[in-house]
Amino acid sequence: MHLAGVDDATIEADYLLTNARTAASRARAEAEIARHLGPDAVEVFEPTLVVDVTYLRAAAATIADVHGDRASYLREGLGLEEATLETLRGLLRAE
């Protein structure tokens, strides 16, 4: 999303929508965990079933620490060439 020019606040808001959009499947998974491993196990597994903005922010901070910025991460960390980035940017912005 950043590659497409989306601001951080919008990226975070979209990321957090995951919890609302996956609530039904998460409830089913939690029910299965409780059934097979007991109700106390649900709390143990919950962090793997939800998104938390601190996870996203931690990833962004690590990218900044290691690569300086997101553009460098894409080019140097992932090895994407500028032509590939332009193609991706165009696809993400396509209407």
Rank of each mutant, 00 (worst) to 15 (best):
A60C: 11
P39Y: 09
T48P: 02
R89D: 00
D8R: 11
D52R: 07
A64T: 13
H67E: 13
A29H: 12
A64L: 01
R35F: 04
A9Y: 02
R35E: 08
R35Q: 08
S72C: 07
A27M: 10
A64C: 00
R70K: 07
D7R: 13
L37T: 08
H36S: 15
T48S: 15
T84Y: 04
A60V: 09
T84D: 07
V42M: 08
A94R: 13
D7L: 11
A27H: 05
T10I: 10
G79Q: 00
A27T: 05
V44L: 04
T22L: 07
D8V: 08
V50C: 06
L56T: 01
T87M: 04
F45A: 05
G68L: 02
G90D: 14
E81M: 09
V66P: 13
A59P: 06
R57Y: 05
V44W: 04
D52V: 06
I11M: 13
A9F: 03
L85M: 13
D40V: 03
G77V: 05
G77K: 10
A60S: 12
R28S: 00
R93L: 11
T84Q: 13
V53W: 03
G79T: 09
L37F: 14
A4V: 09
D69H: 03
L3G: 01
D69I: 04
T87P: 00
E86V: 08
A58I: 07
Y55H: 07
T87G: 05
E46Q: 03
T18M: 03
R93M: 09
L3F: 04
D14V: 11
A41T: 00
A23G: 01
I33Y: 04
A59Y: 06
L37E: 04
E76G: 15
V66E: 11
G90K: 13
A20T: 14
S25I: 15
A94D: 07
